Simulated assay, not measured.
Amino acid sequence: MSDDITVQNAPDRSRYEARIGGVLAGFSQYQLADDRITFVHTEVDTKFEGKGVGSAIARHALDDVRSRGDLTVVPSCPFIAAWLDKHPDYQSLVRQDEGSAKSQ
């Protein structure tokens, strides 16, 4: 099995999915409403923990949001909120009138 992580948006399931060697390794569930995307839950299969799957999902999802240019992020998911705290170059995507999961 390859250690290459591929991440794709699966809009029909409202989530970004990460795969390693074609196997689903993790996902980040989201909700779209108006001009915002709310990340509500991120999960990595235990057999893929520690391989950077969660970070790959977060980076890809937020890069995708940035490329769209019409959405702001509400980080309700504790993992996405913590990832954003560690990557200040993505803070401009965060909806300023919403608190992160850490502060709730």
Rank of each mutant, 00 (worst) to 15 (best):
A58M: 03
L71K: 11
L71N: 03
K102S: 13
T38N: 07
F39I: 00
D4M: 01
F27S: 03
D63A: 03
R13M: 09
N9P: 08
R19W: 05
Q91Y: 00
D45A: 12
P78K: 04
V94L: 04
F27R: 02
Q91R: 15
D35N: 13
R59W: 04
P78S: 15
G69K: 11
G26C: 04
G69W: 05
Q104P: 15
Q8I: 10
T6G: 02
Y30L: 03
S100P: 09
P11E: 05
G54A: 11
D34Q: 14
D64F: 04
Y16K: 03
I37S: 01
L62Q: 06
Q8L: 00
T46Y: 00
A25I: 01
L84T: 10
Y30K: 01
S55R: 11
W83T: 14
R95M: 11
A33Q: 14
I57W: 06
V73Y: 11
V53G: 06
G54L: 00
K86P: 10
I5G: 08
T38P: 02
P75T: 12
I37E: 08
H87W: 01
N9W: 00
S67H: 10
V40D: 13
D85E: 15
D4F: 00
R13H: 15
D97S: 11
A101F: 06
G54W: 05
R13S: 12
I80T: 12
D34F: 05
D97G: 07
R15T: 05
A101P: 05
D3Y: 02
K47G: 13
S76A: 14
R68D: 11
T42Q: 06
V65R: 01
V53A: 03
I5Q: 08
A101D: 04
S67F: 02
V23D: 14
Y30A: 04
T46N: 13
D89N: 14
I57Y: 06
I57L: 04
H87S: 13
Q29I: 06
W83Y: 11
V7S: 01
D3M: 00
V23W: 00
I80H: 02
D85R: 13
R36L: 08
K51G: 06
T72G: 11
Y16T: 02
P75Q: 09
S28R: 00
V23Q: 14
Q104K: 15
D35P: 10
A25D: 07
A81Y: 07
Q8D: 12
I20E: 09
P75A: 02
Q31I: 12
Q104R: 15
E17D: 07
T42W: 06
D63F: 03
I5A: 03
V40R: 03
T42D: 10
A61W: 05
Q96M: 04
L24R: 09
S28I: 04
D89T: 15
G26R: 02
F27W: 08
L24M: 11
H41I: 01
S55K: 11
E43Q: 13
A18I: 03
F48G: 02
